[in-house]
């Protein structure tokens, strides 16, 4: 059990449909469950999923979770600009913001959040991990927050990847490790 992380940990992930937002949330939720916490995972659903934005609330707690809807995230992972703009002001002061700089291309105006931009999509494509920018960002979140361990996430990946796509398990593990090692981009540093 990871005990140095503040609980409950409320996470919002948002991006375009097809970027793997829900899957990334599921990995985080599974890791929380394996670590012995209470967890909840709540997707956005309906027409806004069709080519629009997708978002996903994940809560990790040591007590029964009330509302699974995250309205004031401790951690916000953004994979496109509209989602970034929609949720950035909801992040709890002192919260963690991780953005896919390739897709968001924005620097935050908020000085009261812990901001971590990484060019996840670009690095994923250049590393033979096309389509796994979402998992890179989960790796980054692991490195920044220590919410779980790489070993736990490795098990979470096994449980989350379809049995028909076992070839993806190793790629996902690689993406977690790679994401954890990517340093913050300095594009936003003055």
């Amino acid at each position: 059990m990871v005990d140095h992380v503040k609980m409950p940990l409320n996470i919002m992930l948002a991006g375009f449909g097809g970027q793997g937002i829900l899957f990334a949330g599921k990995l985080i939720a599974y890791a929380g469950m394996i670590d012995g916490h209470e967890i909840s995972w709540l997707p956005s659903y309906g027409p806004e999923m069709r080519g629009g934005t997708a978002n996903c609330s994940v809560s990790i707690s040591d007590e029964a979770i009330g509302s699974p809807l995250v309205t004031e995230p401790d951690v916000f992972i953004a994979m496109n600009l509209p989602s970034y703009e929609r949720f950035i002001d909801t992040v709890r002061p002192g919260g963690v913001v991780i953005v896919d700089e390739t897709m968001v291309g924005a620097c935050t105006l908020r000085s009261d959040v812990d901001y971590h931009p990484i060019p996840a999509t670009e690095i994923a494509e250049n590393s033979g991990l096309k389509g796994l920018a979402n998992v890179l960002l989960v790796g980054k979140m692991l490195a920044v927050t220590g919410f779980s361990t790489e070993a736990t996430l490795s098990v979470a990946i096994e449980k989350s990847v379809s049995a028909k796509r076992l070839d993806l398990v190793e790629l996902n593990r690689k993406a977690i490790a790679l994401g954890a090692d990517i340093p913050d981009s300095d594009a936003c540093r003055a």
Partner: peptide
């Protein structure tokens, strides 16, 4: 309801 139906929990 839609929340309970859509959400995942252990």
């Amino acid at each position: 309801d839609g929340m309970l139906g859509q959400m995942m929990e252990p």
